[in-house]
Design a protein around this nucleic acid. Structure first.
Lengths: 158, 158
DNA sequence: AAAATATAATTTGATTAGCGAATAAAACTT
DNA sequence: AAGTTTTATTCGCTAATCAAATTATATTTT
């Protein structure tokens, strides 16, 4: 393998590693497990979502989504409401408590990243965005590009 | 949040998403679960590793590492050997079968990435490597850079 | 050298995650 | 109206994961 290819893969793995560890830390901080946190983030970001949406975005089966929603509902972080228009569907929406929990536990990784990124010179910001998008495109070229899971970031916006 | 910061985060999330899905696909293809596959990769990369090493590198607790090694050992993909020098430690090493399994299941994501990467013009390769390393550094700046996942292979041995 | 402390792996007991298959209800199709 | 599809849920089962307790071995202190 080309040397630079290898180097890029290593760099990628470091990124994955950092974000993965961060997810666990964050989950702990909130008292939720990682999958539960992901579901809550999805619901908060979207305003409301069906179990099917959640399953798709979180990359798990519907049955799993249901059970994760169960947990969150039990903790009063989300509510379930049957849709009037189509009574098969259930809307899962965050409670105030659910929203509060997320904003009270700001993602430390995202925070440091954002701060540092914004401190970079303009040309470097541009370079990084271009490179990340290039890499994302390359990775998604193989796997058929699935739904945009992680509009998670929503978290920040005041 | 600055627009470009947001854009970069979205790009990052797409990357994470793609690799996550890939991990599952790969695990299925090998008949292993994702954590099991990660452990096997660690062991193969390092030549041999203790459960403690594995726990650190895989980012799980020692108890979990032990149980994952159990599964792999049951399938004869790795072996356990007590160290002579220090009888508290156990060396986990891949069997031929374990190594074969990994090489027989080439990572599709890594493959397409490598191919595409190598097809890029020189300047772009350089740009991507630089950007990925920059991002990795930024991410690891916040979280105290935990165990260097990828010094895999460093370990002792003859 | 004996006692205390530390380290490594494992076992145990519990919860959570996750899947596939089956079920139930509602909505579409023909 | 009958059949098909979609949505959510339930059920049974396996795997992952952790914390705490346990066992064996090393290291350090007295």
């Amino acid at each position: 393998m080309e040397d630079r290819t290898e180097t890029s893969l290593i760099a990628l793995r470091r990124i994955l590693r950092a974000t993965e560890l961060n997810a666990r830390t964050l989950a702990r901080a909130t008292g939720l497990t990682t999958p539960q946190l992901i579901v809550l983030e999805i619901v908060v970001a979207a305003g409301r979502a069906t179990p099917k949406d959640i399953a798709g975005k979180a990359g798990v089966g519907q049955a799993t989504a249901t059970s994760l929603v169960d947990k969150l509902e039990a903790r009063k972080l989300v509510t379930r409401t049957r849709s009037e228009r189509d009574k098969r569907v259930v809307w899962v929406a965050p409670t105030e408590e659910g929203k509060a929990l997320l904003s009270a536990a700001p993602d430390p990784l995202q925070k440091t990243f954002s701060e540092q990124f914004q401190a970079l010179p303009d040309w470097e910001q541009g370079m990084i965005v271009a490179a990340l998008e290039r890499v994302g495109a390359m990775l998604n070229a193989g796997a058929l590009d699935a739904a945009p899971l992680l509009d998670v970031g929503a978290v920040d916006r005041k």
